[in-house]
Design a protein around this nucleic acid. Structure first.
Length: 804
RNA sequence: GCCGCGGUGGUGGAAUUGGUAGACACGCCAGAUUUAGGAUCUGGUGCCCAUCGGGUGUGAAGGUUCGACUCCUUUCCGCGGCACCA
């Protein structure tokens, strides 16, 4: 145990900094490779060992690709707007800018100590005015394209945080941060029309190399449904109620209709005698949170309006009810209820004693209630006997011919609530005038945050900016107030929606990015981050990118070609690392005791990158021991050991080396770092047994180690007499012929059970092997017990005698 | 309830297209070294019975196959997401 990781790691990190070893510029002569980490929010707690897991992986890929001759873009930055700094400001009066700087400095220190090969000249910070300017600029592009609008929306108001939260920030009716109760309150908000891009976002998923699970998650989130809008006339009224259904084939089974309590027609349709109870019901439903309307309350409730609609297909008069199981925010806010084929409608019909007509023949023995399965149409006149798919399209044709409805596609995806009533975010560059709103002009950007004394939102729910009169008021030359600035700010997602584009050209003050640089570097070839961003960040960023693509600002439709989600590192007790459990492992301690190389190596050796697995300091020690074993074998106190010489290496060593080059390269390409490391351990175990090690063999092996344990690799590389960093050494080649085994083991089975092993030369022919196998005493015995009815030979693998 | 992913020794995990299950590492056992501890080195280590040797084994139960961790059916358990979306 003689290797001093502290000295070596400091030495090489200083070297890389001084030489700017990882700085990149566009180079048309080299193929590019853009490998990106999801940038962190610099929290006050600093990193725990789980955070850099993905960064280790991308660093290995980045270093490997450099050696493979790629021009590698590998940047890092900070997603630094956000609630924690603001809440800290509310509590202590410390300006978020100050907190943010302190936290970033600590994060940068921790990330740098792990020896990552980032181009630090490209570091970005979403809160820098030079960055905010372009976030606001993109907002203007969205606004000018008609994709940003104001709306009075029932929003998630959290009195405790004094802030409106996005749906995504509300979990089980409580705020994601802090777990405070959330109520529905209408408020003026900025919205982004992401729904216009539903189809585009869905289609784009087909072109990217992403985990199936993430694609599925996004598909579910977008929630595309094909169906039909059907128009129902109302008895004694002029209004027409349109419903959306995915089952137009069941129209003959529609025995009643339900409107959402908020449906605008409710007040017109309610009969005089029902007015009182309908009003009461609407009021109750309005008060309920989504949680209460949803999962807490599966028991159906509702009330009859006293009015009837006419089923367009058969003229039947069906009662119109209102019920809170119908949501105003999806479809048309009205449904035709088909209790025979929908369990929710069945439950409702059952409770309120409404008629049920089955329109799909259920199989014999079906004992459920509503039948949702496949079957021929019944009780449906011209559809009878058709399967569901055919019945649907025939009904849609009928509706369209009679002008009673049309085929429609709906999405679950809602528009994106884009404003926050907070201080610490990008100001929305809009001014409200008497005669309407106007965006700022591009050259008026950035619109900077004013300094404030108090960071609390004001009691009305408006952001603290509303209190800064001199900022809010826009005056003309005479000093007259002619307009008021928007006081809402953007959500934290805004900065992360396009940071990968800013890395391409981070210092540009004239443009968000240069288009030539953009077309050189984009798309991101590999994007690694946590699965928790599977939907929101990755959907929002794709949305912006699609818009920018349509506007001609970017050259690829999809921003992230390959996505990989790293797993979590759990505490030693197998549960999630958290302060409250006291099982947090601090990377500062790990690096201090064992060094960055050991930590990197262990995190990759633990198991497949995408799986969650518990940390074991014992396992880390195993990796530390591996590095030490290698070090002790090859290094003396300031040079190399005498066992390193120029004598020809034996063929076994050469063969194993070539196998190792093949395996490590292949595994890195496929993100299987654990098995790559295991192969390098096998090779090291072999080297240690040798009396002498050929210097060329060692050089090649150190090149393989470079991406994984860069500090030790650089140090040995230098001691081998190299005066350049190992960073741009070409990745070693292997020779398939040398890597091939020439003596192979053949398993001899009888009836599929292993009974013996023989060793043969690589290209031994079948008959020779079978002869040899039959000749083994043990095999003879087994074969003599019956007749051999089949002899199977799998080349290079095994022989199986089938005996009856 | 629906969608997605997973279940292999005491532990983390290996295992091209179905072809010798348990690579590599941790832990454990024995030995060496050491005043002792730690560190290091050597050997062993799925489970059961045993002297050679044999049986058994990838959550469970079936099936296909000469042969299944791998393919099919049913089922149990764990994790993640969605959840009255018509």
């Amino acid at each position: 145990m003689s290797y001093d990781h502290k000295i070596i790691e400091q030495k090489w990190q200083d070297y890389w900094d001084e030489h700017k070893s990882f700085k990149v510029v566009e180079n048309p002569d080299k193929p590019k490779y853009y490998v990106l980490d999801m940038f962190p929010y610099p929290s006050g707690a600093g990193l725990h060992v789980g955070h850099p897991l993905g960064y280790v992986a991308t660093d290995i890929v980045a270093r490997y690709k450099r050696m493979k001759g790629f021009n590698v873009l590998h940047p890092m930055g900070w997603d630094a707007f956000g609630l924690p700094a603001e809440q800290y400001a509310i509590k202590t009066g410390t300006h978020p800018r100050k907190t943010t700087k302190t936290n970033i400095d600590n994060f940068r220190r921790q990330i740098k100590m792990l020896g990552f090969s980032y181009d630090w000249d490209r570091e970005i910070n979403t809160t820098d005015t030079g960055y905010v300017k372009w976030t606001q600029w993109i907002f203007l592009q969205l606004y000018n394209k008609g994709l940003a609008y104001e709306a009075e929306k029932p929003v998630n108001w959290c009195p405790e945080l004094k802030a409106v939260l996005a749906n995504e920030e509300v979990v089980d009716g409580k705020s994601e941060i802090g777990g405070h109760p959330v109520h529905r309150v209408p408020m003026r908000q900025w919205m982004l029309r992401i729904t216009d891009y539903a189809e585009s976002l869905l289609a784009g998923l087909q072109e990217v190399d992403w985990p199936n699970s993430v694609k599925e998650l996004q598909r579910n989130w977008i929630g595309r449904s094909e169906g039909a809008d059907v128009d129902f006339n109302v008895v004694g009224r002029d209004e027409v109620i349109t419903v959306f259904t995915t089952r137009p084939d069941t129209l003959y089974g529609a025995t009643y209709m339900v409107l959402a309590p908020e449906h605008p027609f409710v007040e017109y349709f309610t009969s005089a005698e029902q007015k009182g109870s309908v009003k009461k019901y609407q009021k109750e439903a309005g008060r309920k949170s989504d949680l209460e309307r949803g999962e807490l309350n599966k028991e159906k409730s509702g009330i009859f309006t006293g009015t009837y609609a006419i089923n367009p297909v058969n003229g039947a008069e069906i009662p119109i009810w209102i019920a809170d199981y119908v949501l105003m925010s999806y479809g048309t806010g009205a449904i035709m209820a088909v209790p025979g084929q929908d369990q929710r409608d069945w439950d409702f019909a059952n409770k309120f004693d409404l008629p049920i007509i089955r329109t799909v023949q259920h199989p014999e023995g079906f004992d459920g209630e509503a039948y949702m399965g496949e079957g021929p149409a019944i009780n449906s006149e011209f559809l009878n006997g058709l399967n569901i798919t055919d019945a649907k399209s025939k009904m849609i044709t009928w509706l369209e011919e009679k002008h009673k409805g049309k085929g429609t596609i709906r999405y679950k995806l809602r528009d994106w609530l884009f404003s926050r009533q907070r201080y610490w975010g990008e100001p929305i560059p809009i001014i409200h005038y008497d005669d309407g709103i106007k965006p700022l002009h591009e050259d008026e950007l950035p619109l900077e945050l004013p300094d404030v004394e108090k960071f609390e939102p004001i009691g009305t729910g408006e952001s603290p900016l509303a209190n800064i009169k001199e900022w809010v008021e826009v005056k003309n030359d005479d000093g007259k107030v002619i307009g008021l600035r928007e006081t809402n700010t953007m959500p934290q997602w805004a900065g992360s929606c396009w940071y990968y584009l800013r890395y391409i050209d981070p210092q540009n003050i004239k443009k968000a990015w240069d288009e030539n640089k953009e077309s050189y570097w984009m798309p991101v070839d590999l994007y690694v981050g946590g699965a928790e961003h599977a939907v929101l960040h990755l959907l929002y960023a794709r949305f912006w990118h699609h818009v920018l693509f349509d506007l001609g600002y970017v050259s690829t439709k999809e921003p992230f070609q390959k996505l990989f989600n790293q797993g979590m590192i759990l505490g030693e007790d197998g549960s999630k690392m958290s302060k409250s459990r006291g099982n947090v492992i601090n990377p500062d301690d790990v690096v201090n005791n064992f060094g960055a190389d050991s930590m990197r190596l262990y995190e990759m050796f633990m198991g497949p990158l995408d799986k969650s697995k518990p940390w074991h300091t014992k396992g880390l020690k195993g990796c530390f021991r591996f590095i030490n074993k290698l070090w002790d074998k090859v290094c003396s106190c300031d040079g190399l050991n005498d066992c390193i010489d120029a004598d020809k290496a034996n063929s076994e060593t050469i063969k194993l080396l070539h196998q190792t080059i093949r395996k490590v390269g292949d595994d890195v390409e496929n993100m299987r770092f654990n098995t790559a490391i295991s192969q390098m351990m096998i090779f090291t175990n072999h080297l240690i047994k040798l009396k002498t090690i050929n210097i060329e063999v060692l050089k090649t092996f150190v090149q393989l180690l470079g991406p994984f344990i860069p500090h030790v690799a650089e140090e040995i590389w230098q001691r081998l007499g190299q005066d350049q960093s190992i960073t741009y050494e070409p990745w070693p080649n292997f020779d398939e012929n040398i890597a091939k085994e020439d003596l192979i083991n053949i398993a001899i089975q009888v009836n599929g059970k292993l009974r013996a092993n023989i060793e043969v030369v690589l290209n031994a022919d079948k008959e020779a092997i079978l002869m040899k196998a039959r000749d083994i005493e043990k095999i003879k015995l087994y074969l003599s017990r019956g007749n051999v009815i089949k002899e199977i030979y799998v080349p290079g693998r095994l022989v199986n005698f089938v005996v009856n």
